[in-house]
Amino acid sequence: MATIKELEQIASQVRRDIVRQVHAVNSGHPGGSLGCADFFVALYFRILNHKPQGFTMDGNGEDLFFLSNGHISPVWYSVLARSGYFPVAELKTFRKLNSRLQGHPTTHEGLPGVRMASGSLGQGMSVAIGAALSKKLNGDKSIVYSLHGDGELQEGQVWEAAMYAAANKVDNLISTIDVNGQQIDGSTDEVLSLGNLRAKWEAFGWDVLDANGNNMEELITIIDLAKMNAGKGKPTMILMKTEMGMGVDFMMGSHKWHGVAPNDEQLANALSQLQETLGDY
Protein backbone atom coordinates (compact mmCIF):
# COMPACT_ATOMS: atom_id res chain seq x y z
CA MET A 1 0.00 0.00 0.00
CA ALA A 2 1.34 3.40 -0.99
CA THR A 3 2.35 5.63 1.93
CA ILE A 4 1.07 9.17 2.36
CA LYS A 5 4.47 10.46 1.28
CA GLU A 6 4.44 8.33 -1.86
CA LEU A 7 0.91 9.44 -2.68
CA GLU A 8 1.96 13.08 -2.34
CA GLN A 9 4.83 12.46 -4.72
CA ILE A 10 2.50 10.91 -7.25
CA ALA A 11 0.18 13.91 -6.89
CA SER A 12 3.08 16.23 -7.72
CA GLN A 13 3.72 14.34 -10.94
CA VAL A 14 0.01 14.34 -11.76
CA ARG A 15 -0.01 18.13 -11.39
CA ARG A 16 2.90 18.37 -13.84
CA ASP A 17 0.96 16.16 -16.25
CA ILE A 18 -2.08 18.44 -15.94
CA VAL A 19 -0.33 21.69 -16.79
CA ARG A 20 1.71 20.05 -19.56
CA GLN A 21 -1.39 18.50 -21.20
CA VAL A 22 -3.28 21.77 -21.14
CA HIS A 23 -0.29 23.83 -22.29
CA ALA A 24 0.39 21.53 -25.24
CA VAL A 25 -2.98 22.19 -26.85
CA ASN A 26 -3.55 25.64 -25.40
CA SER A 27 -6.92 24.51 -24.08
CA GLY A 28 -8.51 22.56 -21.26
CA HIS A 29 -9.29 23.09 -17.59
CA PRO A 30 -6.29 23.27 -15.26
CA GLY A 31 -7.85 24.94 -12.19
CA GLY A 32 -10.27 22.26 -11.02
CA SER A 33 -7.91 19.52 -12.20
CA LEU A 34 -5.09 20.79 -9.96
CA GLY A 35 -7.48 21.18 -7.03
CA CYS A 36 -8.67 17.58 -7.31
CA ALA A 37 -5.27 15.94 -7.96
CA ASP A 38 -4.93 14.71 -4.36
CA PHE A 39 -8.41 13.19 -4.41
CA PHE A 40 -7.77 11.29 -7.64
CA VAL A 41 -4.43 9.99 -6.43
CA ALA A 42 -5.92 8.87 -3.11
CA LEU A 43 -8.71 7.10 -4.93
CA TYR A 44 -6.74 5.34 -7.66
CA PHE A 45 -3.56 4.55 -5.72
CA ARG A 46 -5.03 3.67 -2.35
CA ILE A 47 -8.82 3.43 -2.05
CA LEU A 48 -10.23 1.70 -5.12
CA ASN A 49 -10.28 -2.04 -5.52
CA HIS A 50 -9.79 -2.04 -9.29
CA LYS A 51 -8.01 -3.72 -12.19
CA PRO A 52 -6.21 -1.15 -14.34
CA GLN A 53 -4.65 -3.84 -16.54
CA GLY A 54 -7.82 -5.71 -17.39
CA PHE A 55 -10.42 -3.00 -17.84
CA THR A 56 -13.97 -4.17 -18.49
CA MET A 57 -17.01 -1.97 -18.95
CA ASP A 58 -19.03 -3.98 -16.42
CA GLY A 59 -16.32 -3.88 -13.75
CA ASN A 60 -17.89 -6.78 -11.86
CA GLY A 61 -16.22 -7.25 -8.48
CA GLU A 62 -14.47 -3.88 -8.76
CA ASP A 63 -15.13 -0.48 -7.24
CA LEU A 64 -16.26 1.99 -9.89
CA PHE A 65 -15.64 5.70 -10.28
CA PHE A 66 -17.71 8.20 -12.25
CA LEU A 67 -16.58 11.75 -13.00
CA SER A 68 -19.59 13.99 -13.40
CA ASN A 69 -17.72 17.28 -13.93
CA GLY A 70 -16.00 15.96 -17.02
CA HIS A 71 -14.10 19.15 -17.79
CA ILE A 72 -11.42 18.21 -15.23
CA SER A 73 -10.41 15.42 -17.60
CA PRO A 74 -6.64 16.26 -17.44
CA VAL A 75 -6.35 15.06 -13.83
CA TRP A 76 -8.36 11.90 -14.54
CA TYR A 77 -6.36 11.06 -17.66
CA SER A 78 -3.10 11.53 -15.81
CA VAL A 79 -4.16 9.30 -12.92
CA LEU A 80 -5.63 6.64 -15.23
CA ALA A 81 -2.38 6.54 -17.20
CA ARG A 82 -0.12 6.63 -14.14
CA SER A 83 -2.09 3.79 -12.51
CA GLY A 84 -1.78 1.63 -15.60
CA TYR A 85 -5.01 1.92 -17.58
CA PHE A 86 -3.20 3.09 -20.72
CA PRO A 87 0.32 4.19 -21.70
CA VAL A 88 1.48 7.43 -20.09
CA ALA A 89 2.79 8.60 -23.48
CA GLU A 90 -0.80 8.81 -24.67
CA LEU A 91 -1.22 11.95 -22.55
CA LYS A 92 0.50 13.70 -25.47
CA THR A 93 -2.65 13.22 -27.51
CA PHE A 94 -4.95 15.11 -25.12
CA ARG A 95 -7.57 17.09 -27.08
CA LYS A 96 -5.88 16.34 -30.41
CA LEU A 97 -7.50 14.88 -33.51
CA ASN A 98 -8.02 11.08 -33.48
CA SER A 99 -7.25 10.85 -29.76
CA ARG A 100 -8.92 8.67 -27.15
CA LEU A 101 -8.34 11.56 -24.73
CA GLN A 102 -11.21 13.78 -25.80
CA GLY A 103 -11.70 17.23 -24.30
CA HIS A 104 -14.34 15.73 -22.07
CA PRO A 105 -14.14 12.04 -21.13
CA THR A 106 -16.06 9.55 -23.22
CA THR A 107 -16.51 5.84 -23.79
CA HIS A 108 -16.87 6.53 -27.50
CA GLU A 109 -13.20 6.09 -28.39
CA GLY A 110 -12.78 3.16 -26.01
CA LEU A 111 -10.42 4.72 -23.46
CA PRO A 112 -9.87 2.17 -20.66
CA GLY A 113 -11.09 3.45 -17.30
CA VAL A 114 -13.98 5.54 -18.60
CA ARG A 115 -17.48 4.05 -18.32
CA MET A 116 -19.65 7.05 -19.18
CA ALA A 117 -19.36 10.25 -21.15
CA SER A 118 -19.53 13.42 -19.08
CA GLY A 119 -19.22 17.09 -19.87
CA SER A 120 -22.78 18.29 -19.96
CA LEU A 121 -23.14 18.78 -16.23
CA GLY A 122 -25.42 17.25 -13.64
CA GLN A 123 -25.72 13.73 -15.03
CA GLY A 124 -23.06 11.74 -13.20
CA MET A 125 -24.85 11.07 -9.93
CA SER A 126 -27.81 9.44 -11.68
CA VAL A 127 -25.43 7.22 -13.61
CA ALA A 128 -23.50 6.31 -10.45
CA ILE A 129 -26.78 5.40 -8.75
CA GLY A 130 -27.64 3.14 -11.69
CA ALA A 131 -24.28 1.39 -11.48
CA ALA A 132 -24.71 1.01 -7.71
CA LEU A 133 -28.17 -0.54 -8.17
CA SER A 134 -26.77 -2.89 -10.79
CA LYS A 135 -24.12 -4.01 -8.28
CA LYS A 136 -26.79 -4.68 -5.69
CA LEU A 137 -28.78 -6.80 -8.16
CA ASN A 138 -25.62 -8.73 -8.97
CA GLY A 139 -24.78 -9.32 -5.31
CA ASP A 140 -21.55 -7.37 -5.84
CA LYS A 141 -20.41 -5.72 -2.60
CA SER A 142 -18.09 -3.22 -4.30
CA ILE A 143 -18.54 0.52 -3.90
CA VAL A 144 -19.41 3.14 -6.50
CA TYR A 145 -17.74 6.55 -6.22
CA SER A 146 -18.61 9.75 -8.01
CA LEU A 147 -17.16 13.25 -8.14
CA HIS A 148 -19.08 16.44 -8.85
CA GLY A 149 -18.24 20.11 -9.08
CA ASP A 150 -19.88 22.51 -6.66
CA GLY A 151 -21.09 24.78 -9.45
CA GLU A 152 -22.63 21.67 -10.98
CA LEU A 153 -25.06 21.50 -8.07
CA GLN A 154 -26.96 24.28 -9.82
CA GLU A 155 -28.21 21.62 -12.24
CA GLY A 156 -31.61 20.26 -11.14
CA GLN A 157 -30.91 16.65 -12.06
CA VAL A 158 -28.42 16.41 -9.20
CA TRP A 159 -31.25 16.94 -6.73
CA GLU A 160 -33.48 14.40 -8.44
CA ALA A 161 -30.63 11.94 -7.96
CA ALA A 162 -30.02 13.07 -4.37
CA MET A 163 -33.66 12.44 -3.49
CA TYR A 164 -33.70 9.05 -5.20
CA ALA A 165 -30.49 7.73 -3.60
CA ALA A 166 -31.63 8.47 -0.07
CA ALA A 167 -35.23 7.30 -0.55
CA ASN A 168 -34.01 4.02 -2.03
CA LYS A 169 -31.12 3.46 0.41
CA VAL A 170 -28.41 3.39 -2.23
CA ASP A 171 -25.78 2.82 0.46
CA ASN A 172 -23.04 1.49 -1.80
CA LEU A 173 -22.57 4.98 -3.23
CA ILE A 174 -20.00 7.50 -2.01
CA SER A 175 -20.26 10.83 -3.78
CA THR A 176 -17.86 13.71 -3.39
CA ILE A 177 -18.34 17.35 -4.21
CA ASP A 178 -15.33 19.44 -5.07
CA VAL A 179 -16.15 22.52 -3.03
CA ASN A 180 -13.74 25.05 -4.50
CA GLY A 181 -16.26 27.87 -4.53
CA GLN A 182 -15.46 28.85 -8.10
CA GLN A 183 -17.21 28.57 -11.44
CA ILE A 184 -16.67 30.11 -14.88
CA ASP A 185 -18.34 33.45 -14.29
CA GLY A 186 -16.98 33.97 -10.78
CA SER A 187 -17.35 32.59 -7.28
CA THR A 188 -20.33 30.34 -6.62
CA ASP A 189 -21.56 32.96 -4.17
CA GLU A 190 -21.60 35.59 -6.90
CA VAL A 191 -23.10 33.43 -9.62
CA LEU A 192 -25.75 31.48 -7.70
CA SER A 193 -25.16 30.86 -4.04
CA LEU A 194 -25.23 27.20 -3.04
CA GLY A 195 -26.31 28.04 0.49
CA ASN A 196 -25.63 25.61 3.28
CA LEU A 197 -24.47 22.48 1.51
CA ARG A 198 -24.23 20.31 4.60
CA ALA A 199 -27.79 21.20 5.63
CA LYS A 200 -29.03 20.58 2.10
CA TRP A 201 -27.53 17.09 1.79
CA GLU A 202 -28.55 16.13 5.30
CA ALA A 203 -32.08 17.29 4.60
CA PHE A 204 -32.05 15.08 1.51
CA GLY A 205 -31.23 12.12 3.75
CA TRP A 206 -27.52 11.62 3.11
CA ASP A 207 -24.73 11.07 5.61
CA VAL A 208 -22.38 14.00 5.18
CA LEU A 209 -18.64 14.15 5.84
CA ASP A 210 -16.30 17.12 5.47
CA ALA A 211 -12.79 16.79 4.12
CA ASN A 212 -9.83 18.95 3.24
CA GLY A 213 -9.25 17.78 -0.31
CA ASN A 214 -5.70 19.06 -0.39
CA ASN A 215 -4.50 17.15 2.66
CA MET A 216 -3.72 13.57 1.62
CA GLU A 217 -3.75 12.09 5.08
CA GLU A 218 -7.06 13.66 6.07
CA LEU A 219 -8.62 12.81 2.72
CA ILE A 220 -7.79 9.12 3.09
CA THR A 221 -9.08 9.05 6.66
CA ILE A 222 -12.39 10.57 5.55
CA ILE A 223 -12.85 8.29 2.53
CA ASP A 224 -12.09 5.29 4.77
CA LEU A 225 -14.77 6.57 7.15
CA ALA A 226 -17.20 6.85 4.25
CA LYS A 227 -16.42 3.25 3.24
CA MET A 228 -17.31 2.08 6.74
CA ASN A 229 -20.68 3.72 6.22
CA ALA A 230 -21.45 1.55 3.19
CA GLY A 231 -24.24 -0.97 3.63
CA LYS A 232 -25.84 0.95 6.47
CA GLY A 233 -28.86 2.30 4.65
CA LYS A 234 -27.72 5.74 3.50
CA PRO A 235 -25.66 7.16 0.65
CA THR A 236 -22.63 9.17 1.76
CA MET A 237 -21.63 12.64 0.64
CA ILE A 238 -18.13 14.00 1.15
CA LEU A 239 -18.01 17.78 0.99
CA MET A 240 -14.41 18.18 -0.08
CA LYS A 241 -12.92 21.63 0.23
CA THR A 242 -10.18 22.26 -2.31
CA GLU A 243 -8.23 25.19 -3.63
CA MET A 244 -8.68 25.65 -7.34
CA GLY A 245 -5.26 25.63 -8.99
CA MET A 246 -3.61 24.00 -5.95
CA GLY A 247 0.14 23.54 -6.35
CA VAL A 248 0.73 26.42 -8.74
CA ASP A 249 0.76 29.71 -6.84
CA PHE A 250 -0.43 32.01 -9.60
CA MET A 251 -3.37 29.74 -10.46
CA MET A 252 -4.66 29.37 -6.91
CA GLY A 253 -7.83 30.80 -5.46
CA SER A 254 -9.31 32.32 -8.59
CA HIS A 255 -11.88 31.25 -11.14
CA LYS A 256 -9.66 32.78 -13.84
CA TRP A 257 -7.79 29.49 -14.36
CA HIS A 258 -10.96 27.41 -14.68
CA GLY A 259 -10.57 26.94 -18.41
CA VAL A 260 -7.42 28.76 -19.52
CA ALA A 261 -4.09 27.21 -20.52
CA PRO A 262 -0.73 28.58 -19.38
CA ASN A 263 1.63 30.10 -21.96
CA ASP A 264 5.29 28.95 -22.28
CA GLU A 265 6.54 31.23 -19.54
CA GLN A 266 3.70 30.34 -17.19
CA LEU A 267 4.27 26.65 -17.85
CA ALA A 268 7.94 26.95 -16.88
CA ASN A 269 6.95 28.81 -13.73
CA ALA A 270 4.34 26.16 -12.86
CA LEU A 271 6.69 23.26 -13.47
CA SER A 272 9.35 24.89 -11.28
CA GLN A 273 6.87 24.58 -8.42
CA LEU A 274 6.02 20.92 -9.04
CA GLN A 275 8.56 18.20 -8.46
CA GLU A 276 9.05 15.62 -11.22
CA THR A 277 8.73 12.37 -9.27
CA LEU A 278 7.77 9.68 -11.76
CA GLY A 279 9.28 11.10 -14.93
CA ASP A 280 7.48 13.34 -17.42
CA TYR A 281 5.84 11.65 -20.39
Binding site: M57, M125, V127, I129, G130, A131
Partner: peptide, 10 residues
Protein backbone atom coordinates in the same frame (compact mmCIF):
# COMPACT_ATOMS: atom_id res chain seq x y z
CA UNK B 1 -29.21 8.47 -16.04
CA UNK B 2 -29.96 5.57 -13.71
CA UNK B 3 -30.92 3.45 -16.71
CA UNK B 4 -27.61 4.29 -18.40
CA UNK B 5 -25.71 3.39 -15.23
CA UNK B 6 -27.54 0.10 -14.78
CA UNK B 7 -26.25 -1.18 -18.11
CA UNK B 8 -22.86 -1.27 -16.37
CA UNK B 9 -23.02 -4.70 -14.78
CA UNK B 10 -25.06 -6.17 -17.61
Amino acid sequence: GIAAGMTIGG
